[in-house]
Write a protein that binds this DNA or RNA. Structure first.
Lengths: 336, 336
DNA sequence: CTGAAAGCGCTAACAG
DNA sequence: CTGTTAGCGCTTTCAG
């Protein structure tokens, strides 16, 4: 049996297709009896609306495209979940594509989203997207930049102040009496990591007795954290830092697992440890981890709101929202 | 500027829309010069095909719906990723919905998938889906059951032998000299957990000297594992098991974190520990975890293949594929 | 090999 | 309040 269409419903309910459409989209302008009769017919035929036809007629879909650059990062998962909720309340769904930091995959999804005629896209740009963005603009597809600011600021953006976050973590370490700090980052070139480091530097520079060493790993993963931790643990005592600031929690958790000195955990007594993102595992790890929390859910919600407003009114000026991170103190930075 | 359509392309290339469509779908039957001329025109207008229109004409979309029952479970994430790859090679995309074990959400996604006229759906059923499945069948939408077998076996399924997995883990514990076993499960009613326990029981029953205690937690999470671990660690030595089989790795990792006896880790010397799923964290945890690995990627690939075959030929008999799990031995079960 | 034309299911404008 | 109708962009016969 093929799916029933509005025509079939109309025939069974003895009304016209226009009325069926009205029952679907503006039930208030249809008389109650008619509404009921039509709904009964729909049920009888187990009618389901054909989204493709609707979309074709409307000119755009009821979907928002979201391109994240790391599917494994809980920060993004959270943000995406919040975006989905907000969008869903407004009758939209969110389609997610993971670029995994590859600019060709980013381009691929941008393309797919265009074919799908999405209502707008939420993007954490990786490569040089300026030309693509220009095209989106020509097409009247609104774009909101997430977690990274646009270079030309002609697109709205929702981000978090990573410089402030880096400063927050560093100030806390110094406040708890640490003086030989180590920053552990991911591959150079990730803007967020650079910003967090810049924040750390600015604070260290104001404290004459404090030093800051920097170590860049290959990736922001638990494995890499373990590897770096082992290197640090193997150093001579005088060369070891007394505090480590990891660019994200995955890295920090890896460090935590391998920072053992003379067979005993070095955190927090010998080495204080701060992570970034405050993922669920941060609280659940062997030594609960102090971390810098980003308002991931709020970011997702705000980004969708702005996007939908711009979709409704293409003449809106771009807006730039920047949230402040927050320090969550746990045992991994307990003062000696 | 509105998006260019086949009409615009046809006009610019001085051909008919039919030819443009042919260039798009069967370029081989069009003369090379014409193809080139049309492609040039497409580029000039930066034409992108309208999926909605295409879909309307074709009668179905190029998407497969996937309903998983836990977005946080790495087993599903892996399976979904494999499904996406396989689907993508065949020109399909996968739309994912998380039911989170809630049957009304499951119904919601099933509905959405119908509206979207998906080519088929991959489903790990939660509630009583029999009536819905019947409807899908009437609509000629193929369904493949994943990780759970259908009660009436009239739908194809791809699953893993959880009874065998439970037996595998248990046999290994006994082989390494353990005799007082404890099974830690999640909420009753989850079929997989029940099957793993049944497997464990069957092996224990064949070994007279071995006992099996069973503890059911509230959920299959790290937190719950930590809670249960603390309870076990606090028992009198004589009451403590010498081996624990956890129904999944999250639980096992929680247990690992809290199974400390006299301030020292109890695993693996005093208590051997086996998990299930072999998630990434299993290898990366403080004591690398022995675990039962499911061929998650293979499941995703197979399920998509079967689905697509059935979509092409609705007269195919349902097939039932059942994979065998595999034991991955690591330090958490090192013999004393 | 190419062109013309029908029609997929829906919504919105307009007429009654 | 309800009915009629045009047309969204595409693919696919069917003729040429």
């Amino acid at each position: 049996m093929a799916s029933a269409s509005v025509k079939d419903v109309a025939a069974l309910a003895q009304v016209s297709v226009g009325t069926v459409s009205n029952v679907l989209n503006r039930p208030d302008i249809v008389s109650p009896e008619t509404v009921e009769r039509v709904q009964l017919a729909m049920e009888k035929l187990s009618y389901v609306r054909n989204e493709a036809a609707r979309q074709l007629r409307l000119g755009h879909s009821q979907a928002i495209g979201l391109i994240s650059f790391s599917g494994a990062n809980p920060f993004f998962t959270d943000m995406a979940a919040a975006a989905e909720n907000t969008a869903s309340e407004a009758g939209y769904e969110v389609i997610i594509g993971n670029s995994n930091e590859r600019s060709e995959r980013e381009a691929g999804y941008l393309n797919l989203f265009e074919e799908l005629r999405v209502r707008g896209v939420l993007l954490s740009p990786v490569g040089d997207v300026a030309p693509r963005l220009r095209r989106m603009r020509e097409r009247d597809i609104p774009v909101v930049l997430v977690d990274r600011e646009s270079s030309d600021s002609s697109f709205s953006s929702v981000s978090v102040d990573d410089v402030a976050g880096g400063a927050l973590a560093t100030q806390h370490l110094i406040d708890t009496g640490r003086t030989r700090l180590l920053f552990v980052g991911g591959p150079a070139g990730i803007q967020q990591v650079g910003d967090r480091l810049a924040g750390a530097r600015s604070v260290v520079d104001q404290h004459p007795g404090v030093t800051l060493e920097v170590l860049f790993g290959e990736s922001l993963t638990v494995f890499e954290g373990r590897r770096i931790g082992r290197i640090v643990a193997d150093r001579a005592p005088a060369d070891r830092p007394d505090a480590v600031f990891a660019a994200n929690d995955l890295l920090a958790i890896g460090l935590l697992q391998s920072l053992f000195i003379d067979g005993k955990p070095a955190v927090p007594d010998q080495i204080a440890l701060v992570g970034y993102d405050d993922i669920l595992f941060a609280e659940a790890s062997v030594v609960p981890l102090t971390s810098v929390r980003q308002p991931s859910r709020l970011i997702g919600e705000t980004a969708v709101q702005i996007l939908l407003e711009e979709a409704d009114d293409r003449s809106l000026e771009p807006r730039h929202i920047r949230y402040q991170p927050e320090l969550v103190v746990r045992e991994s930075t307990t003062p000696r």
